[in-house]
Amino acid sequence: MMQKKHMRLVRAGKFLKLFKKDTQYATPIFRIDQKRKNLQFIIAFKLEDDDFYVLNRSEKGYSKELKRIKVFTKSQLYNAMAKVPIKARETIQILQVPSDKKLLKDYVTYYDKASIDWLTFGKKANLDDVYDPFRDAHSALFHSDDSDNAISYDDYQGIQDFHPFSVLDNHAQALPCRYQDPIRQKIVSLQLMGWYFLGQQLKISWKPDNQLNARWRSSVVAIDRKTRRYFFQGNIYQEKGTDPVFLENLSFDCDLKNSRAAKAEFDRFIQEIKEQERVALLKLR
Results as ranks from 00 to 15, higher is better:
Ser75Leu: 08
Lys274Cys: 13
Tyr62Asn: 00
Arg184Cys: 04
Lys64Met: 02
Gln271Asn: 11
Gln276Thr: 02
Asp50Ser: 05
Asp49Gln: 00
Asp267Arg: 07
Gln157Ser: 07
Arg217Asp: 12
Asp100Pro: 05
Gln191Glu: 07
Gln271Asp: 08
Asp132Leu: 03
Leu47Thr: 04
Lys20Pro: 08
Glu90Asn: 02
Ala114Gln: 14
Arg278Ile: 05
Arg228Gln: 14
Lys87Tyr: 06
Glu48Ile: 01
Arg178Pro: 00
Ser144Thr: 11
Leu198Tyr: 13
Tyr110Leu: 06
Asp209Ala: 08
Tyr111Pro: 03
Lys226Leu: 08
Gln180Thr: 03
Arg31Cys: 09
Ser139Cys: 09
Lys263Asn: 09
Arg285Gly: 01
Lys105Phe: 01
Ala172Met: 06
Glu265Ala: 08
Phe30Ala: 02
Arg36Asn: 14
Phe231Ala: 10
Leu281Phe: 06
Ile42Arg: 03
Lys35Tyr: 06
Gln233Pro: 12
Lys203Cys: 15
Gly158Ile: 15
Asp112Ala: 08
Thr91Cys: 00
Ile187Leu: 14
Ile159Ser: 13
Ala88Phe: 00
Leu95Met: 01
Trp195Gly: 14
Cys177Met: 07
Pro85His: 00
Leu119Met: 10
Gln157Pro: 04
Phe162Asn: 10
Lys67Gln: 12
Gly158Val: 11
Asp243Ile: 04
Leu250Pro: 01
Phe246Lys: 10
Gln276Tyr: 04
Ala222Asn: 15
Leu103Glu: 07
Arg31Leu: 10
Gln34Thr: 09
Met7Ile: 13
Glu90Ala: 05
Arg217Gln: 08
Val167Asp: 06
Phe134Met: 05
Thr23Cys: 06
Gln211Asn: 01
Val97Lys: 08
Lys37Glu: 12
Gln24Leu: 05
Tyr179Asn: 08
Lys46Asp: 01
His143Thr: 03
Arg225Thr: 09
Thr27Asp: 04
Gln160Leu: 06
Asp243Val: 02
Leu212Gly: 00
Glu277Lys: 14
Tyr230Val: 04
His6Ile: 10
Lys70Gln: 05
Gln3Phe: 01
Glu248Arg: 05
Phe252Ile: 01
Leu103Lys: 12
Met2Pro: 15
Thr242Cys: 14
Ser152Thr: 11
Ile42Tyr: 06
Lys74Gln: 13
Gly122Val: 07
Asp136Val: 02
Arg268Ile: 01
Ser75Met: 15
Gln93Thr: 03
Leu39Asp: 05
Asp49Trp: 03
Lys4Glu: 13
Leu250Arg: 00
Tyr156Ser: 15
Pro176Ala: 04
Ile223Asp: 02
Tyr25Ala: 13
Asp224Trp: 06
Thr109Pro: 01
Arg89Ile: 03
Lys17Leu: 12
Gln233Ala: 06
Ser219Cys: 11
Pro208Lys: 03
Ala88Tyr: 02
Gln173Ser: 10
Val220Cys: 15
Phe72Gly: 04
Cys254Gln: 04
Ala214Leu: 07
Tyr237Lys: 03
Lys257Thr: 15
Ala172Ile: 09
Gly158Met: 15
Ile116Lys: 10
Thr73Arg: 13
Phe142Glu: 03
Phe19Ala: 15
Asn249Tyr: 03
Lys203His: 12
Arg225Asp: 10
Gly13Trp: 04
Lys14Arg: 14
Ala174Ile: 05
Ile159Trp: 02
Lys124Ser: 13
Gln271Thr: 09
Ile151Arg: 12
Leu16His: 14
Lys113His: 08
